[in-house]
């Protein structure tokens, strides 16, 4: 592959003076360029570019004492339950009706923007069910960031929530 081309073959010259062959000063650089670009492509493709980004999460601390719990009016609470098969169930406070939505732009994002406009004191409680995927949690946190919600928390999906989801009314409980 690597060959240096010389101009003028110099073969088959009959007789005459023996001339010093003039060699070209030019080198065929094609193979070198081939190699250079091969390496270039390789390194461009393998370099990782560090695409990993992160999302900062702050979880509420465990509150054990009754008096340390913050009390919130139940009408200011929007419950979002992350369910199976990428479904979101939501209701306000402690009573049904429970409605469903999804993770699309017209789904939960629209809902959040509408609700926060209607009630700026809105507190969002995110309750992922055990059947949901990790992706759901990241998606919903991302939505919080996109819609610039200030007050939200990830909390446990409790037995009370289960009753509400099934159509019953939850008990009077204090939410953290």
């Amino acid at each position: 592959m690597a060959e240096i081309s010389e101009s003028g073959g110099g073969k088959g010259k009959k007789g005459g003076k023996v001339r010093a062959k003039k060699q070209s000063t030019k080198v065929d650089m094609t193979p070198m360029v081939d190699l250079a670009f091969l390496l270039l492509t390789f390194f461009i493709l393998t370099s990782t570019f560090n695409k990993s980004k992160t999302m900062e999460v702050t979880m509420p601390d465990k509150v054990t004492k009754e008096e340390e719990q913050t009390k919130i009016n139940e009408n200011d609470i929007l419950n979002l339950v992350l369910g199976e098969n990428d479904k979101i169930y939501y209701w306000v406070g402690l009573t049904p009706p429970v409605e469903t939505t999804n993770y699309s732009k017209d789904g939960v994002r629209k809902l959040l923007l509408e609700r926060i406009k209607a009630n700026p004191k809105l507190m969002i409680l995110i309750k992922p069910k055990d059947e949901s995927r990790y992706n759901n949690m990241v998606d919903i946190l991302d939505e919080m960031d996109i819609t610039q919600m200030k007050r939200y928390a990830i909390v446990e999906f409790t037995a009370d929530d289960k009753t509400i989801l099934a159509g019953g009314t939850g008990q009077e409980t204090t939410q953290q």
Partner: peptide, 12 residues
């Protein structure tokens, strides 16, 4: 008592 941590995500 580790309340702040990061979740690694890809860029969208």
């Amino acid at each position: 008592r580790i309340l702040r941590f990061n979740l690694i995500t890809g860029l969208e």
